[in-house]
Write a protein that binds this DNA or RNA. Structure first.
Lengths: 253, 253
DNA sequence: CGCTCGCGTTGCGTATTTTGCAACGCGGGT
DNA sequence: ACCCGCGTTGCAAAATACGCAACGCGAGCG
Protein backbone atom coordinates (compact mmCIF):
# COMPACT_ATOMS: atom_id res chain seq x y z
CA UNK A 1 0.00 0.00 0.00
CA UNK A 2 1.59 3.22 -1.17
CA UNK A 3 0.82 5.52 1.71
CA UNK A 4 3.12 8.28 0.60
CA UNK A 5 1.57 8.29 -2.87
CA UNK A 6 -1.96 8.28 -1.49
CA UNK A 7 -1.07 11.24 0.71
CA UNK A 8 0.23 13.18 -2.25
CA UNK A 9 -2.94 12.43 -4.19
CA UNK A 10 -5.03 13.56 -1.25
CA UNK A 11 -3.12 16.84 -1.28
CA UNK A 12 -3.99 17.29 -4.93
CA UNK A 13 -7.64 16.68 -4.07
CA UNK A 14 -7.48 19.41 -1.43
CA UNK A 15 -5.93 21.81 -3.93
CA UNK A 16 -8.66 20.90 -6.39
CA UNK A 17 -11.09 22.62 -4.04
CA UNK A 18 -8.98 25.75 -3.75
CA UNK A 19 -5.38 26.88 -3.40
CA UNK A 20 -3.95 26.52 0.10
CA UNK A 21 -0.90 27.23 2.23
CA UNK A 22 1.42 24.65 3.72
CA UNK A 23 -0.20 24.96 7.15
CA UNK A 24 -3.71 24.70 5.76
CA UNK A 25 -2.85 21.53 3.89
CA UNK A 26 -1.06 20.07 6.89
CA UNK A 27 -4.08 20.73 9.06
CA UNK A 28 -6.57 19.30 6.55
CA UNK A 29 -4.53 16.20 5.88
CA UNK A 30 -3.58 15.61 9.54
CA UNK A 31 0.00 15.20 8.44
CA UNK A 32 3.05 17.03 9.76
CA UNK A 33 3.93 20.09 7.74
CA UNK A 34 7.41 18.75 7.11
CA UNK A 35 5.89 15.75 5.40
CA UNK A 36 3.49 17.92 3.43
CA UNK A 37 6.35 20.19 2.44
CA UNK A 38 8.38 17.33 1.00
CA UNK A 39 5.46 15.90 -0.91
CA UNK A 40 4.62 19.33 -2.32
CA UNK A 41 8.21 19.90 -3.35
CA UNK A 42 8.19 16.69 -5.32
CA UNK A 43 4.84 17.59 -6.87
CA UNK A 44 6.12 21.09 -7.66
CA UNK A 45 9.26 19.75 -9.29
CA UNK A 46 7.08 17.69 -11.62
CA UNK A 47 4.67 20.58 -12.29
CA UNK A 48 1.68 18.95 -10.61
CA UNK A 49 1.63 21.87 -8.24
CA UNK A 50 2.72 25.47 -8.53
CA UNK A 51 2.87 28.37 -6.09
CA UNK A 52 0.83 31.43 -6.77
CA UNK A 53 1.81 35.02 -6.02
CA UNK A 54 0.80 34.65 -2.39
CA UNK A 55 2.91 31.54 -1.86
CA UNK A 56 -0.15 29.35 -1.81
CA UNK A 57 0.01 26.05 -3.56
CA UNK A 58 -2.32 25.36 -6.45
CA UNK A 59 -2.76 22.69 -9.07
CA UNK A 60 -0.08 22.85 -11.74
CA UNK A 61 -0.13 22.78 -15.51
CA UNK A 62 1.16 19.22 -15.79
CA UNK A 63 -2.41 18.21 -15.11
CA UNK A 64 -3.53 20.03 -18.28
CA UNK A 65 -0.88 18.22 -20.22
CA UNK A 66 -1.73 14.78 -18.92
CA UNK A 67 -5.45 15.41 -19.24
CA UNK A 68 -5.08 16.51 -22.84
CA UNK A 69 -3.06 13.41 -23.66
CA UNK A 70 -5.46 11.14 -21.80
CA UNK A 71 -8.40 12.53 -23.77
CA UNK A 72 -6.50 12.06 -27.02
CA UNK A 73 -5.90 8.42 -26.14
CA UNK A 74 -9.64 7.91 -26.08
CA UNK A 75 -10.32 7.33 -29.75
CA UNK A 76 -14.06 7.26 -29.16
CA UNK A 77 -13.90 10.92 -28.20
CA UNK A 78 -12.06 11.93 -31.36
CA UNK A 79 -14.49 10.04 -33.56
CA UNK A 80 -17.55 11.34 -31.73
CA UNK A 81 -16.47 14.96 -31.35
CA UNK A 82 -17.50 16.37 -34.77
CA UNK A 83 -20.81 14.50 -34.74
CA UNK A 84 -21.71 15.75 -31.29
CA UNK A 85 -20.55 19.25 -32.15
CA UNK A 86 -23.05 19.20 -35.01
CA UNK A 87 -25.79 17.82 -32.78
CA UNK A 88 -25.09 20.63 -30.32
CA UNK A 89 -25.18 23.09 -33.22
CA UNK A 90 -28.48 21.80 -34.55
CA UNK A 91 -30.29 21.48 -31.25
CA UNK A 92 -28.65 24.24 -29.21
CA UNK A 93 -28.77 22.03 -26.13
CA UNK A 94 -26.17 20.57 -23.82
CA UNK A 95 -24.62 17.40 -25.22
CA UNK A 96 -22.50 14.89 -23.30
CA UNK A 97 -20.35 11.92 -24.18
CA UNK A 98 -19.75 9.34 -21.45
CA UNK A 99 -17.95 6.02 -21.16
CA UNK A 100 -17.80 3.22 -18.63
CA UNK A 101 -14.35 3.16 -17.07
CA UNK A 102 -13.16 1.39 -13.98
CA UNK A 103 -16.68 0.62 -12.68
CA UNK A 104 -17.79 4.18 -13.16
CA UNK A 105 -19.40 6.26 -15.84
CA UNK A 106 -17.26 9.26 -16.77
CA UNK A 107 -18.03 12.24 -18.98
CA UNK A 108 -15.28 12.58 -21.59
CA UNK A 109 -16.76 15.32 -23.72
CA UNK A 110 -19.30 18.08 -23.28
CA UNK A 111 -20.84 20.77 -25.46
CA UNK A 112 -22.46 23.66 -23.67
CA UNK A 113 -25.99 24.84 -24.37
CA UNK A 114 -26.43 27.91 -26.57
CA UNK A 115 -28.92 29.15 -24.02
CA UNK A 116 -27.90 30.75 -20.72
CA UNK A 117 -28.01 27.49 -18.79
CA UNK A 118 -25.19 25.61 -17.12
CA UNK A 119 -25.16 22.20 -15.58
CA UNK A 120 -23.07 20.49 -12.95
CA UNK A 121 -21.58 17.98 -15.32
CA UNK A 122 -18.08 18.46 -16.58
CA UNK A 123 -15.45 16.48 -18.38
CA UNK A 124 -13.80 14.14 -15.93
CA UNK A 125 -16.63 13.96 -13.44
CA UNK A 126 -18.47 10.71 -12.93
CA UNK A 127 -22.17 10.33 -13.61
CA UNK A 128 -24.43 8.68 -11.11
CA UNK A 129 -24.87 5.04 -12.05
CA UNK A 130 -28.51 4.86 -10.98
CA UNK A 131 -29.88 8.13 -12.27
CA UNK A 132 -27.99 9.52 -15.27
CA UNK A 133 -29.38 8.59 -18.68
CA UNK A 134 -25.93 7.87 -20.10
CA UNK A 135 -25.33 5.43 -17.24
CA UNK A 136 -28.54 3.54 -17.98
CA UNK A 137 -27.57 3.21 -21.63
CA UNK A 138 -24.13 1.88 -20.74
CA UNK A 139 -25.43 -0.54 -18.11
CA UNK A 140 -28.28 -1.78 -20.30
CA UNK A 141 -25.86 -3.49 -22.67
CA UNK A 142 -24.14 -5.51 -19.96
CA UNK A 143 -24.89 -9.14 -19.16
CA UNK A 144 -27.68 -9.48 -16.59
CA UNK A 145 -25.39 -10.96 -13.96
CA UNK A 146 -23.02 -8.01 -14.14
CA UNK A 147 -25.98 -5.62 -14.02
CA UNK A 148 -27.25 -7.33 -10.88
CA UNK A 149 -23.85 -7.16 -9.26
CA UNK A 150 -23.49 -3.47 -10.00
CA UNK A 151 -27.09 -2.69 -9.02
CA UNK A 152 -26.63 -4.48 -5.72
CA UNK A 153 -23.54 -2.46 -4.90
CA UNK A 154 -24.97 0.98 -5.52
CA UNK A 155 -25.82 3.61 -2.94
CA UNK A 156 -29.23 4.81 -4.11
CA UNK A 157 -28.80 8.43 -3.15
CA UNK A 158 -32.10 10.23 -3.66
CA UNK A 159 -30.97 13.22 -5.69
CA UNK A 160 -34.50 14.27 -6.74
CA UNK A 161 -38.02 13.02 -6.12
CA UNK A 162 -37.79 10.96 -9.28
CA UNK A 163 -34.55 9.17 -8.49
CA UNK A 164 -34.69 5.38 -8.62
CA UNK A 165 -34.26 3.93 -5.14
CA UNK A 166 -33.81 0.20 -5.42
CA UNK A 167 -31.89 -2.38 -7.45
CA UNK A 168 -35.20 -3.85 -8.69
CA UNK A 169 -36.37 -0.51 -10.03
CA UNK A 170 -33.04 0.09 -11.74
CA UNK A 171 -32.89 -3.36 -13.33
CA UNK A 172 -36.45 -3.01 -14.60
CA UNK A 173 -35.57 0.29 -16.18
CA UNK A 174 -32.41 -1.16 -17.72
CA UNK A 175 -34.49 -3.88 -19.36
CA UNK A 176 -36.77 -1.23 -20.84
CA UNK A 177 -33.73 0.74 -22.04
CA UNK A 178 -32.29 -2.37 -23.69
CA UNK A 179 -35.55 -2.98 -25.55
CA UNK A 180 -36.24 0.58 -26.65
CA UNK A 181 -32.62 1.44 -27.38
CA UNK A 182 -32.45 4.72 -25.46
CA UNK A 183 -32.77 6.05 -21.91
CA UNK A 184 -34.17 9.06 -20.22
CA UNK A 185 -33.32 10.86 -17.01
CA UNK A 186 -36.59 12.15 -15.69
CA UNK A 187 -34.94 14.86 -13.56
CA UNK A 188 -33.49 12.00 -11.53
CA UNK A 189 -29.89 13.17 -11.76
CA UNK A 190 -30.21 16.92 -11.59
CA UNK A 191 -33.36 18.63 -10.39
CA UNK A 192 -35.15 20.56 -13.11
CA UNK A 193 -33.04 18.97 -15.84
CA UNK A 194 -34.20 16.04 -17.93
CA UNK A 195 -32.36 14.33 -20.71
CA UNK A 196 -32.24 11.48 -23.13
CA UNK A 197 -29.29 9.30 -24.03
CA UNK A 198 -28.53 6.83 -26.80
CA UNK A 199 -25.82 4.18 -27.25
CA UNK A 200 -22.71 4.32 -29.40
CA UNK A 201 -21.59 0.89 -30.63
CA UNK A 202 -18.39 -0.52 -32.03
CA UNK A 203 -17.88 -2.99 -34.86
CA UNK A 204 -18.94 -5.88 -32.64
CA UNK A 205 -22.17 -4.15 -31.70
CA UNK A 206 -21.11 -3.62 -28.11
CA UNK A 207 -22.01 -0.35 -26.46
CA UNK A 208 -18.76 1.53 -25.91
CA UNK A 209 -20.10 4.99 -25.08
CA UNK A 210 -23.30 6.95 -24.63
CA UNK A 211 -24.30 10.41 -25.78
CA UNK A 212 -27.03 12.54 -24.32
CA UNK A 213 -29.00 15.75 -24.76
CA UNK A 214 -29.87 17.55 -21.55
CA UNK A 215 -32.40 20.36 -21.17
CA UNK A 216 -33.90 22.23 -18.21
CA UNK A 217 -37.52 21.19 -17.80
CA UNK A 218 -38.65 24.83 -17.94
CA UNK A 219 -37.19 25.14 -21.43
CA UNK A 220 -38.64 22.03 -22.97
CA UNK A 221 -41.46 19.72 -22.03
CA UNK A 222 -40.93 15.98 -21.87
CA UNK A 223 -42.69 15.66 -25.23
CA UNK A 224 -40.38 18.30 -26.66
CA UNK A 225 -37.41 16.41 -25.27
CA UNK A 226 -38.53 13.21 -26.97
CA UNK A 227 -38.66 15.09 -30.26
CA UNK A 228 -34.89 15.40 -30.01
CA UNK A 229 -34.52 11.63 -30.01
CA UNK A 230 -34.34 11.04 -33.78
CA UNK A 231 -31.65 13.69 -34.04
CA UNK A 232 -29.68 12.22 -31.14
CA UNK A 233 -29.95 8.69 -32.55
CA UNK A 234 -28.91 9.88 -35.98
CA UNK A 235 -25.72 11.22 -34.39
CA UNK A 236 -24.98 8.20 -32.23
CA UNK A 237 -25.60 5.87 -35.18
CA UNK A 238 -23.30 7.92 -37.39
CA UNK A 239 -20.61 7.67 -34.77
CA UNK A 240 -21.27 3.93 -34.46
CA UNK A 241 -20.89 3.49 -38.22
CA UNK A 242 -17.61 5.39 -38.08
CA UNK A 243 -16.54 2.77 -35.52
CA UNK A 244 -17.49 -0.06 -37.86
CA UNK A 245 -20.97 -0.82 -36.58
CA UNK A 246 -23.46 -2.14 -39.11
CA UNK A 247 -27.09 -1.40 -38.48
CA UNK A 248 -29.35 -4.45 -38.77
CA UNK A 249 -32.60 -2.83 -37.95
CA UNK A 250 -34.77 0.10 -38.82
CA UNK A 251 -34.70 2.47 -35.86
CA UNK A 252 -37.52 4.69 -34.75
CA UNK A 253 -38.57 6.50 -31.61
CA UNK B 1 12.91 13.21 -1.45
CA UNK B 2 9.73 11.33 -2.18
CA UNK B 3 11.03 8.49 -4.27
CA UNK B 4 7.82 6.50 -4.30
CA UNK B 5 5.83 9.53 -5.41
CA UNK B 6 8.35 10.42 -8.10
CA UNK B 7 8.15 6.87 -9.41
CA UNK B 8 4.41 7.03 -9.61
CA UNK B 9 4.61 10.31 -11.49
CA UNK B 10 7.11 8.78 -13.89
CA UNK B 11 4.66 5.97 -14.53
CA UNK B 12 2.00 8.53 -15.40
CA UNK B 13 4.45 10.15 -17.82
CA UNK B 14 5.01 6.78 -19.52
CA UNK B 15 1.28 6.25 -19.81
CA UNK B 16 0.95 9.73 -21.28
CA UNK B 17 2.87 8.46 -24.28
CA UNK B 18 0.66 5.40 -24.71
CA UNK B 19 -1.13 2.72 -22.68
CA UNK B 20 1.16 -0.06 -21.43
CA UNK B 21 1.19 -3.37 -19.58
CA UNK B 22 2.71 -4.02 -16.18
CA UNK B 23 5.80 -5.58 -17.69
CA UNK B 24 6.29 -2.77 -20.18
CA UNK B 25 6.11 -0.18 -17.44
CA UNK B 26 8.41 -2.18 -15.20
CA UNK B 27 10.97 -2.43 -17.97
CA UNK B 28 10.79 1.25 -18.91
CA UNK B 29 11.01 2.46 -15.34
CA UNK B 30 13.71 -0.03 -14.31
CA UNK B 31 11.65 -0.89 -11.29
CA UNK B 32 10.52 -4.33 -10.15
CA UNK B 33 7.08 -5.23 -11.42
CA UNK B 34 5.87 -5.81 -7.87
CA UNK B 35 6.68 -2.21 -7.07
CA UNK B 36 5.04 -0.98 -10.25
CA UNK B 37 1.99 -3.07 -9.54
CA UNK B 38 1.53 -1.54 -6.10
CA UNK B 39 1.95 1.98 -7.37
CA UNK B 40 -0.52 1.35 -10.20
CA UNK B 41 -3.04 -0.13 -7.80
CA UNK B 42 -2.92 3.00 -5.71
CA UNK B 43 -3.21 5.17 -8.82
CA UNK B 44 -6.09 3.02 -10.08
CA UNK B 45 -7.93 3.27 -6.79
CA UNK B 46 -7.78 7.05 -7.07
CA UNK B 47 -8.77 7.02 -10.76
CA UNK B 48 -5.46 8.38 -12.02
CA UNK B 49 -5.11 5.21 -14.00
CA UNK B 50 -7.59 2.77 -15.48
CA UNK B 51 -7.26 -0.53 -17.27
CA UNK B 52 -8.50 -0.81 -20.82
CA UNK B 53 -10.13 -3.85 -22.42
CA UNK B 54 -6.77 -5.50 -23.02
CA UNK B 55 -5.67 -5.09 -19.40
CA UNK B 56 -3.26 -2.37 -20.31
CA UNK B 57 -2.99 0.59 -18.02
CA UNK B 58 -3.90 4.03 -19.30
CA UNK B 59 -4.35 7.49 -17.86
CA UNK B 60 -7.57 7.77 -15.86
CA UNK B 61 -10.40 10.27 -15.76
CA UNK B 62 -9.32 11.85 -12.49
CA UNK B 63 -6.85 13.78 -14.57
CA UNK B 64 -9.72 15.35 -16.54
CA UNK B 65 -11.38 16.31 -13.33
CA UNK B 66 -8.30 17.89 -11.77
CA UNK B 67 -7.35 19.58 -15.01
CA UNK B 68 -10.80 21.08 -15.35
CA UNK B 69 -10.70 22.38 -11.80
CA UNK B 70 -7.17 23.68 -12.20
CA UNK B 71 -8.20 25.64 -15.29
CA UNK B 72 -11.22 27.05 -13.46
CA UNK B 73 -8.96 28.27 -10.67
CA UNK B 74 -7.15 30.38 -13.21
CA UNK B 75 -9.41 33.41 -13.28
CA UNK B 76 -7.43 34.95 -16.09
CA UNK B 77 -8.57 32.17 -18.36
CA UNK B 78 -12.22 32.65 -17.57
CA UNK B 79 -11.99 36.40 -18.16
CA UNK B 80 -10.00 36.02 -21.35
CA UNK B 81 -11.95 33.14 -22.90
CA UNK B 82 -14.84 35.04 -24.54
CA UNK B 83 -12.56 37.78 -25.83
CA UNK B 84 -10.14 35.33 -27.39
CA UNK B 85 -13.01 33.25 -28.77
CA UNK B 86 -14.17 36.39 -30.59
CA UNK B 87 -10.66 37.14 -31.80
CA UNK B 88 -10.44 33.62 -33.15
CA UNK B 89 -13.85 34.08 -34.77
CA UNK B 90 -12.89 37.36 -36.42
CA UNK B 91 -9.44 36.37 -37.65
CA UNK B 92 -9.92 32.65 -38.26
CA UNK B 93 -6.42 32.00 -36.94
CA UNK B 94 -4.97 30.02 -34.03
CA UNK B 95 -5.12 31.97 -30.77
CA UNK B 96 -3.27 31.08 -27.56
CA UNK B 97 -3.36 32.28 -23.99
CA UNK B 98 -0.22 31.71 -21.90
CA UNK B 99 0.92 32.53 -18.39
CA UNK B 100 4.18 32.43 -16.47
CA UNK B 101 4.02 29.69 -13.88
CA UNK B 102 6.78 28.11 -11.87
CA UNK B 103 9.57 29.55 -14.03
CA UNK B 104 7.90 28.37 -17.22
CA UNK B 105 5.46 29.72 -19.74
CA UNK B 106 2.40 27.50 -20.05
CA UNK B 107 -0.47 27.59 -22.54
CA UNK B 108 -3.74 27.66 -20.63
CA UNK B 109 -6.14 28.20 -23.50
CA UNK B 110 -6.12 27.64 -27.22
CA UNK B 111 -8.52 28.27 -30.10
CA UNK B 112 -7.90 26.29 -33.24
CA UNK B 113 -7.59 27.83 -36.69
CA UNK B 114 -10.62 27.71 -38.98
CA UNK B 115 -8.26 26.61 -41.73
CA UNK B 116 -6.94 23.06 -42.06
CA UNK B 117 -3.80 23.75 -40.05
CA UNK B 118 -2.75 22.35 -36.71
CA UNK B 119 0.14 23.31 -34.49
CA UNK B 120 2.13 21.51 -31.83
CA UNK B 121 0.94 23.73 -29.03
CA UNK B 122 -1.70 22.48 -26.67
CA UNK B 123 -3.17 23.46 -23.35
CA UNK B 124 -0.79 22.39 -20.62
CA UNK B 125 2.37 22.35 -22.68
CA UNK B 126 5.12 24.83 -21.99
CA UNK B 127 6.29 27.36 -24.52
CA UNK B 128 9.96 27.86 -25.19
CA UNK B 129 11.22 30.78 -23.13
CA UNK B 130 13.61 32.05 -25.77
CA UNK B 131 11.57 31.70 -28.94
CA UNK B 132 7.81 31.85 -28.37
CA UNK B 133 6.22 35.28 -28.75
CA UNK B 134 4.07 34.84 -25.63
CA UNK B 135 7.22 34.12 -23.63
CA UNK B 136 8.88 37.29 -24.82
CA UNK B 137 5.86 39.34 -23.81
CA UNK B 138 5.81 37.79 -20.36
CA UNK B 139 9.55 38.15 -19.82
CA UNK B 140 9.64 41.72 -21.13
CA UNK B 141 7.67 43.00 -18.14
CA UNK B 142 10.05 41.54 -15.58
CA UNK B 143 12.79 43.48 -13.77
CA UNK B 144 16.05 43.48 -15.72
CA UNK B 145 17.85 41.47 -13.05
CA UNK B 146 15.30 38.68 -13.21
CA UNK B 147 15.43 38.74 -17.00
CA UNK B 148 19.20 38.35 -16.90
CA UNK B 149 18.95 35.47 -14.47
CA UNK B 150 16.40 33.65 -16.60
CA UNK B 151 18.26 34.42 -19.84
CA UNK B 152 21.51 33.09 -18.38
CA UNK B 153 19.85 29.84 -17.36
CA UNK B 154 18.28 28.97 -20.70
CA UNK B 155 19.30 26.25 -23.07
CA UNK B 156 19.18 28.04 -26.41
CA UNK B 157 17.96 25.14 -28.48
CA UNK B 158 18.02 26.11 -32.14
CA UNK B 159 14.53 25.12 -33.19
CA UNK B 160 14.64 26.98 -36.50
CA UNK B 161 17.16 29.09 -38.39
CA UNK B 162 15.65 32.19 -36.82
CA UNK B 163 15.85 31.07 -33.21
CA UNK B 164 17.69 33.41 -30.85
CA UNK B 165 20.88 31.78 -29.65
CA UNK B 166 22.33 33.88 -26.86
CA UNK B 167 21.27 35.68 -23.69
CA UNK B 168 22.39 38.98 -25.21
CA UNK B 169 20.19 38.54 -28.25
CA UNK B 170 17.23 37.58 -26.11
CA UNK B 171 17.64 40.51 -23.70
CA UNK B 172 17.95 42.94 -26.59
CA UNK B 173 14.75 41.62 -28.08
CA UNK B 174 12.98 41.82 -24.70
CA UNK B 175 13.93 45.48 -24.48
CA UNK B 176 12.41 46.05 -27.90
CA UNK B 177 9.27 44.16 -26.87
CA UNK B 178 8.95 46.24 -23.72
CA UNK B 179 9.14 49.46 -25.77
CA UNK B 180 6.84 48.48 -28.58
CA UNK B 181 4.37 46.61 -26.40
CA UNK B 182 4.14 43.41 -28.46
CA UNK B 183 6.35 40.55 -29.62
CA UNK B 184 6.73 38.41 -32.67
CA UNK B 185 7.98 34.91 -33.25
CA UNK B 186 9.69 34.97 -36.59
CA UNK B 187 9.28 31.21 -37.11
CA UNK B 188 11.67 30.82 -34.17
CA UNK B 189 9.46 28.47 -32.22
CA UNK B 190 7.87 26.36 -34.93
CA UNK B 191 9.22 26.19 -38.45
CA UNK B 192 6.92 27.74 -41.02
CA UNK B 193 4.76 29.33 -38.35
CA UNK B 194 5.06 32.94 -37.29
CA UNK B 195 3.04 34.77 -34.72
CA UNK B 196 2.53 37.91 -32.73
CA UNK B 197 1.70 38.26 -29.06
CA UNK B 198 0.49 41.06 -26.81
CA UNK B 199 0.35 41.49 -23.03
CA UNK B 200 -2.63 41.20 -20.74
CA UNK B 201 -2.34 43.38 -17.63
CA UNK B 202 -4.01 43.46 -14.26
CA UNK B 203 -5.17 46.42 -12.20
CA UNK B 204 -1.61 47.19 -11.16
CA UNK B 205 -0.45 47.26 -14.75
CA UNK B 206 1.63 44.13 -14.36
CA UNK B 207 1.63 41.64 -17.23
CA UNK B 208 -0.17 38.55 -15.99
CA UNK B 209 -0.73 36.72 -19.28
CA UNK B 210 -0.04 36.94 -22.98
CA UNK B 211 -2.21 36.20 -25.96
CA UNK B 212 -1.04 35.41 -29.46
CA UNK B 213 -2.14 34.87 -33.03
CA UNK B 214 -0.22 32.20 -34.93
CA UNK B 215 -0.29 31.63 -38.68
CA UNK B 216 1.66 29.42 -41.09
CA UNK B 217 3.98 31.59 -43.17
CA UNK B 218 2.51 30.16 -46.39
CA UNK B 219 -0.91 31.47 -45.44
CA UNK B 220 0.05 35.00 -44.48
CA UNK B 221 3.07 37.16 -45.12
CA UNK B 222 4.82 38.94 -42.28
CA UNK B 223 3.11 42.16 -43.34
CA UNK B 224 -0.23 40.41 -43.30
CA UNK B 225 0.55 39.08 -39.83
CA UNK B 226 1.27 42.59 -38.57
CA UNK B 227 -2.12 43.68 -39.84
CA UNK B 228 -3.63 41.42 -37.18
CA UNK B 229 -1.89 43.39 -34.44
CA UNK B 230 -4.59 46.06 -33.86
CA UNK B 231 -7.20 43.34 -33.53
CA UNK B 232 -5.03 41.33 -31.14
CA UNK B 233 -4.25 44.38 -29.03
CA UNK B 234 -7.91 45.36 -28.94
CA UNK B 235 -8.65 41.96 -27.43
CA UNK B 236 -5.80 41.94 -24.92
CA UNK B 237 -6.65 45.47 -23.83
CA UNK B 238 -10.31 44.55 -23.39
CA UNK B 239 -9.27 41.62 -21.24
CA UNK B 240 -6.91 43.90 -19.28
CA UNK B 241 -9.72 46.37 -18.66
CA UNK B 242 -11.90 43.52 -17.41
CA UNK B 243 -9.08 42.86 -14.95
CA UNK B 244 -9.09 46.46 -13.77
CA UNK B 245 -6.32 47.86 -15.94
CA UNK B 246 -6.62 51.50 -16.90
CA UNK B 247 -5.02 52.52 -20.13
CA UNK B 248 -2.83 55.62 -19.87
CA UNK B 249 -1.71 55.82 -23.45
CA UNK B 250 -2.98 55.78 -26.97
CA UNK B 251 -1.94 52.51 -28.51
CA UNK B 252 -1.03 51.94 -32.12
CA UNK B 253 0.90 49.47 -34.19
C1' DC C 1 14.85 50.24 14.92
C1' DG C 2 14.13 46.18 17.49
C1' DC C 3 11.17 42.60 18.69
C1' DT C 4 7.69 39.20 17.89
C1' DC C 5 5.08 36.16 15.22
C1' DG C 6 3.81 33.39 11.31
C1' DC C 7 5.26 30.34 8.07
C1' DG C 8 8.35 27.83 5.25
C1' DT C 9 12.55 25.10 5.82
C1' DT C 10 16.25 21.92 7.64
C1' DG C 11 19.10 18.14 10.08
C1' DC C 12 18.66 13.94 12.08
C1' DG C 13 17.40 9.61 14.37
C1' DT C 14 13.73 6.46 14.64
C1' DA C 15 9.82 4.20 12.94
C1' DT C 16 7.57 2.77 9.19
C1' DT C 17 7.08 1.85 4.60
C1' DT C 18 8.83 0.37 0.35
C1' DT C 19 11.05 -2.88 -2.16
C1' DG C 20 12.51 -7.05 -4.53
C1' DC C 21 12.63 -11.96 -4.31
C1' DA C 22 10.68 -16.22 -5.11
C1' DA C 23 6.88 -18.50 -5.89
C1' DC C 24 1.91 -18.80 -6.94
C1' DG C 25 -2.39 -18.74 -9.74
C1' DC C 26 -4.87 -18.30 -13.81
C1' DG C 27 -5.97 -18.06 -18.55
C1' DG C 28 -4.73 -18.75 -23.21
C1' DG C 29 -2.43 -21.24 -26.71
C1' DT C 30 -0.30 -25.34 -28.57
C1' DA D 1 -2.44 -31.76 -20.50
C1' DC D 2 1.31 -28.83 -20.39
C1' DC D 3 3.74 -24.60 -20.88
C1' DC D 4 4.20 -19.79 -20.91
C1' DG D 5 3.08 -15.06 -20.03
C1' DC D 6 1.55 -11.98 -16.88
C1' DG D 7 -0.55 -10.29 -12.85
C1' DT D 8 -0.39 -11.19 -7.87
C1' DT D 9 1.13 -12.37 -3.02
C1' DG D 10 3.82 -13.20 1.49
C1' DC D 11 7.72 -11.85 3.72
C1' DA D 12 12.21 -10.18 5.31
C1' DA D 13 15.58 -6.79 4.43
C1' DA D 14 16.75 -2.41 2.85
C1' DA D 15 15.67 2.05 2.32
C1' DT D 16 12.95 5.85 2.84
C1' DA D 17 9.46 8.59 5.09
C1' DC D 18 8.35 10.81 8.97
C1' DG D 19 7.97 13.89 12.88
C1' DC D 20 10.51 16.54 16.15
C1' DA D 21 12.72 20.56 17.44
C1' DA D 22 14.78 24.32 16.04
C1' DC D 23 16.16 27.68 12.48
C1' DG D 24 15.70 31.63 9.21
C1' DC D 25 13.38 35.21 7.12
C1' DG D 26 10.05 38.65 6.20
C1' DA D 27 6.28 41.40 7.70
C1' DG D 28 3.99 43.97 11.08
C1' DC D 29 3.81 46.50 15.26
C1' DG D 30 5.24 49.30 19.11
Amino acid sequence: MSQSLIRAIDLLAELAAKPATLDELSSKASVHKTTVMRLLHALEEKRFVVRDDEQRFMLGSKLFELSSLALEQRDIRKVAHPHLAELNGRTGHTVHLAVFEGNEVVYIDKFESHHPVRMYSRIGLTASLHSAAVSKVLLADMPRSRQEKIAAGLDYVKVTDNTLTSPEALLAELEQVRIQGWAHDNAEHEAFVHCIAAPIRDASGAVVAAASCSVPVVMLSYEGLLELLPDLKASTEAISRDLGWISHERNSA
